[in-house]
Nucleic acid binder design. Structure first.
Length: 152
DNA sequence: GCCAACGTTGGC
DNA sequence: GCCAACGTTGGC
């Protein structure tokens, strides 16, 4: 099966690509949106991920990551002390899932959202059309294009 | 910090 | 099952 491509957003001051590089890999907990969750459940080990900083100056794609573990229940949903606690979640029938991703590379040049919006070939991206979706599917040519814009 | 976009909740 | 109210995301 062909490799798939994704884009995942993180607030720069919450968990940046530098944090990911320092950690090597991380679990992507706290996604509480059904469409984003569905996307994560589609992910296969080895899929490539565009790492996006939101609430950043400027917001944009900053590097690459790779799916290192396929979807498994997000146990933070069952933890009353977690910010991501979800009271209605049943451990026997989990609502929320997460994946693990590992650090791959940081772009020599950040690709700001404003530049993505200027490229005709990228107008169909969910990044442009669906502002608020935090885990998005990306087409291979979109992935390659942004990677190139980032200097890799 | 403001506020538009938009997903979710809950009353009816 | 509609839709108004509400809460959150995220650009600027």
């Amino acid at each position: 099966m062909a490799k798939q491509y994704w884009l995942m957003k993180s607030e720069e001051d919450v968990y940046s690509i530098d944090d990911l590089e320092a950690d090597g890999s991380t679990c992507w907990e706290g996604v509480r949106n059904y469409e984003a969750r569905n996307n994560m459940q589609e992910m296969k080990e080895g899929d490539m991920v565009l790492y996006y900083h939101s609430n950043a100056k400027p917001s944009g794609v900053v590097g690459l990551a790779r799916v290192s573990r396929e979807a498994y229940p997000d146990h933070y949903a069952f933890d009353p002390d977690s910010n991501y606690h979800h009271e209605k979640s049943d451990p026997d029938d989990p609502t929320w899932y997460m994946v693990d991703i590992e650090y791959v590379d940081t772009f020599p040049e950040r690709v700001p959202l404003s530049e993505v919006k200027e490229v005709d070939a990228l107008q169909e991206m969910e990044l442009v059309r669906r502002m608020r979706l935090s885990v998005q599917s990306v087409k291979q040519d979109e992935f390659e294009r942004i990677k190139k814009m980032g200097g890799l």
